[in-house]
């Protein structure tokens, strides 16, 4: 029990740190010094101390949006395994609940954006939903492929069974799932080939434009929610690729956290060397993820 609580606390404490790592890598590539590693924490604390301004056109949905999104994401955290150890909650079929919690978080972010009544935010909401149409089936299908491989419907069991051993036998289905999950990971966290988290150029923003009208505490919730979501989806990826199963619990934790930092470095490198795709090319990328996951699923069905 203590171990499980420790897992959750570690997730909640560490997740904003990864953004600092990404920023450092990008700064390194650009030859800058970069913002402090803990900047995301400073931002969140600064925002928590501030009050929020609400427009007259908004209703309670606007205030509820960030709170519900964050709580859905925090709940989703309780279902993801940490370093190959069982998650806080797990039951047969929690995979569906997990995906729908992510969906709920997205739904309320979009709803809050629409509630502002600004056409600008409506544009971002429409883009977010348009890309989700492709990204969510891809996530579902790649998890379904993992379900077929491991024969269990609980996230904890799936990631307890897909070990590095399956990778060394070069199971093609797993490789395809990793490819699909990486694309989904970048999309859902609005990272560079799809969306640029730094830019505030109106024509191309997706996530940032949706949360533009939130301020103060609400924005702190959103910022923290984004960090937690980054951790959640990163865990799906890193639990397959990178973890150890030595007997010592805290050694495993340390290795896994190191793995997540490696993932953040990888994202930073991708962001530094790639340009973002033109907006109408994004569905193409997402359909590639869909194709990979369909392929993985068919492979597991036939063998």
């Amino acid at each position: 029990m203590y171990a499980k609580v420790t897992q959750l606390i570690l997730i909640f404490l560490i997740s904003p740190f990864l953004f600092g790592v990404i920023n450092r890598i990008k700064a390194f590539f650009a030859g800058r010094k970069g913002i402090p590693l803990l900047q995301t924490y400073y931002d969140i604390f600064k925002l928590l101390r501030k009050g929020a301004v609400y427009s007259k056109t908004t209703t309670w949905i606007f205030i509820a949006g960030p709170i519900i999104s964050l709580s859905a994401l925090v709940c989703a955290c309780a279902f993801i395994p940490f370093a190959g150890h069982r998650a806080f909650f797990s039951f047969e079929g929690d995979i569906v609940l997990f995906i729908y919690l992510l969906g709920l978080a997205r739904f309320f972010t979009v709803l809050a954006a629409l509630d502002t009544g600004s056409s600008f935010e409506g544009m971002g909401a429409s883009r977010e939903v348009q890309f989700a149409v492709f990204a969510e089936p891809a996530l579902f299908l790649s998890l379904a492929a993992l379900v077929r491989i491991t024969g269990t419907m609980s996230l904890s069991d799936i990631f307890a069974n897909t070990t590095i051993n399956t990778l060394t036998t070069l199971d093609p289905a797993i490789l395809l799932v990793i490819g699909a999950l990486f694309i989904i990971f970048l999309t859902e966290n609005s990272r560079i080939p799809v969306d640029d988290p730094n830019t505030h150029l109106e024509l191309t923003m997706i996530h940032e434009v949706m949360v533009l009208d939130h301020g103060g505490i609400d924005f702190a919730y959103i910022l923290y929610g984004v960090a937690v979501k980054f951790w959640i989806l990163g865990t799906l990826l890193m639990s397959i690729i990178f973890r150890t199963n030595s007997g010592i619990v805290f050694f495993d934790y340390a290795v896994f956290i190191f793995g997540m930092i490696v993932l953040a470095v990888a994202v930073g490198i991708v962001e530094s060397i790639m340009a973002r795709l033109r907006l109408f090319k994004v569905p193409n990328l997402l359909i590639v993820a869909l194709a990979l996951s369909v392929l993985a699923l068919t492979l597991t069905m036939r063998i």
Binding site: N284, I287, V288, L290, A291, V294, L295, T298, R302
Partner: peptide
């Protein structure tokens, strides 16, 4: 368009399975 033809490719793969 490209997305549609890619999607068609996925469907054709399923059909051939």
């Amino acid at each position: 368009g490209y997305p549609l033809s890619l999607l068609m490719g996925v469907i054709l793969f399923l059909v051939s399975c």
